[in-house]
Amino acid sequence: MEPPPRFRLLKQPLSSYQDGSNIVYYLPESKQTLMLPIVASEILAKLSAAFPASIRLDSLYDSNSSKQTRKTVKKIVNVFSDIGLTEELE
C-alpha cells in the first residue's frame, strides 16, 4: 500500500474566530471568510507545530479515529491546500 501523503504548512495561521463547534478563518488571499468544523483548528495546530517541516497525513489523526474523522481531516487538509495554506509533497 502507498504511504499516506506528506503535507507542509506554507504560511502561519491567519486571524480566526471560534466557538465550541466551528472555526472561522480570514483568508487574506481572497479576503473571504471560511468556516470549518472545530477539528480544523486542531489540524492547523499540529501543522503549525511542525512548521516549516512536513508531516504525514495520518499523523493528523490517531489510530482509533473513525473512518468519518479520517475523511473529515483529509477534506480539511484539501481545503487548506486550496487556499494556499498547505502544500502536498511528492
Binding site: 472555526i23 472561522v24 471568510t33
Partner: peptide, 23 residues
C-alpha cells in the same frame, strides 16, 4: 457566533476594504 460572523461579513459593504481589520 461563527455562523453569525460569516453572515455579517457577507453583508458588509467595506469588509473587502478593511480586510483583516474588518474581520
Amino acid at each position: 457566533r461563527p455562523h453569525a460572523l460569516v453572515e455579517l461579513a457577507n453583508q458588509s459593504f467595506n469588509y473587502p476594504v478593511l480586510c483583516q481589520q474588518g474581520f
